[in-house]
Every structure is written in C-alpha cells, then in structure tokens.
Design a protein around this nucleic acid. Structure first.
Lengths: 153, 153
DNA sequence: TATTGTTATACTCTATAACTATA
DNA sequence: TATAGTTATAGAGTATAACAATA
C-alpha cells in the first residue's frame, strides 16, 4: 500500500533509453535485411559474406562469429558457394580445416552491400560532428573495452 | 589518382559510430533471445507475447508490427495458444477479425520476460544519469519524431 | 468485390546427433 | 582420443498462392 508501487520499472530515464535502443535495433535489422534482399541474400548469408570479405575463415570460426552450431554454416556457405560468391579452400596447416573465402564477385557484392546500408548516413546525418563524437564516447563507455563484435560490416 | 581514394567510407567518426551501433544491435538481440529461451520461447514468440501484453490485437495488426506476412502469424499465435499464453477472441465489430489476447498466465510470462532483460541495467549502469540524459537526447534526435516502434517491450 | 484469417507449399535458419577424415 | 566438417533430421520463421467466411 506504499504510495510508490513496485519497482519493476527501474526509472523513467533508463526505461526510455532502453526503448530508444530497441527502436534502433529494429530499424537497423530492417535496413540490413532489406539491403541483403536487394542482392537476393538472406540476413545470415549477407553477414557471412561481409565476414569473409575481411578474411578467409574456417567453418568453425564462422559458427563462432554467428553464435550458431557449425552444422548450420555448411548450408549457408553451400548457398553462397552455389552462387560463386564464396569458395572453400584447403588449409595447408591442417587438412581437416576448410577455409571459406570470398571470390572476386563475392567481394564486389559485399562492397555494394556495404555501400547500400543507409543507416550510416541518414539518421546519423541529423547529428553534428560534435554530437557524433559525444554519441561515440557514450556508446564506447556503455559497451566497455572489448566491443569488437560488430555485425560483420 | 588523387591522394585520397574513393569515398566509400564516409568518415572515420561516422564509421565508428555505425560499428558501435552494430555491436549494440548484436548484444541486444543475443540478450533478448537468451531471455526468451529461458522461458522456452523463440524470439518471435516473445515479441508477439510482449506486444499482446499491451493490448489485444487482430492477427493482421500483429503481422504489421512484425513486418511479416499474416500467414506467418497464424503459426506463431498457434504455438503460444497451445501453451495457453495467448487466446483468440472474436471481434464484436467485425466477424472476420480474430483478436489475439494474452491469458493471465501469458501476462505473467511477459512480465517475467521483461524483468529478465539485463540489457537495461548492466551496460546502461556504467553511465551517470547526466550521461544517460545526453544519450537519450542524441538517440531521440537521431531517430526523429515518430520513433514509437520499439521491440515490443 | 474487397478483406480477414487460414491452409498448403517451399525455402532458410536453427539445434541435435551421428558420421568421416584427419590430428 | 579429440577435433573439423558434414549429413540427417526435426522444429521454427518466412514468403507466395489459393481458399473460406465475412464485409
């Protein structure tokens, strides 16, 4: 019967920030999937392609980056390979390992995909450089040190 | 042959902010799916449950919020209904419409799900209230006015 | 005729378990 | 024996097309 009810909602400020972040998450995903679809790729395929555009990776490493089981990567790479965007190469150091690597065409597709991601310019364009710097610093502090795990781009 | 190459990377500051946002997106989704899994729900099921915890919705409206085809909602609601978390009700105004609504048990599950979302507290806890206010204002400006489309929570 | 929800179908992503070829 | 990758299988989400009931 206390005047202030149960504290299931932390505080209005934190709640609003969390909701805003939720909106960012939804918009980011929508834009990413739309950009992928424009190249006839699923979200997972686009993410793997972007990953491999940086460096060839063993199947198992791809699974780790995607946080999924290795068996799933087989199919995703199969579908990318069927379109000649990716190929499997032997690893000279360990004959069990297969390295997935982008083909020249795959690299070009990954590049066009990256360029077609509007999210970078449109919403961020509303902020001045000083504001972007402030946002960067706040996000850095929020995410902590080892924040190297992006979306593949 | 100009010294500065093609402007495919907008500028380092914007690039870093986009990468940081990508990290936020990945972490948010991971935490959301983990929280859902703790309640034996998929991400889509959890999102629909959170949506319906606010108000009953026609199947078609759910599809709009999820940005998917209405035919998909049938299955998602079927699976929630099989667990008695959601039920279908007739719409008195239009007999074509079925309103999906949470049951009392569904409401309780949605509430526990919301409480178990760590993302609100942990990373945001590293920022002072003043910093959170700054972050809120920057996100507001970035997302524009009609930013009411969150993640269902 | 148009709309709401459903069914049927096919594809992709997902986890689990069993298999192979290496190590 | 342990590890890397694959296959087989089953469940879930997705889009498309066709359908029944209602407007």
């Amino acid at each position: 019967m206390a005047p202030s009810s149960t504290p299931r909602t932390p505080d209005p400020l934190t709640t609003e920030v969390v909701e805003l972040i939720g909106t960012v998450v939804v918009r980011y995903h929508e834009e990413y999937d739309e950009a992928a679809a424009r190249h006839s790729l699923t979200g997972a395929q686009a993410r793997v392609l972007a990953l491999l555009a940086r460096e060839p990776l063993p199947m198992r490493r791809i699974a780790e980056r995607l946080k999924c089981e290795p068996s799933n990567v087989t199919g995703i790479v199969d579908r990318l390979a069927a379109r000649r965007l990716v190929e499997r190469r032997p690893d000279p150091d360990d004959r069990r390992v297969k390295l997935a690597a982008v083909t020249p065409e795959g690299r070009a597709t990954a590049e066009r995909l990256r360029e077609s991601l509007h999210f970078a310019r449109e919403p961020l364009g509303r902020l001045s450089p000083a504001e972007r710097t402030t946002l960067r610093d706040l996000l850095r502090r929020m995410l902590g040190e080892g924040s190297g795990e992006g979306f593949g781009e």
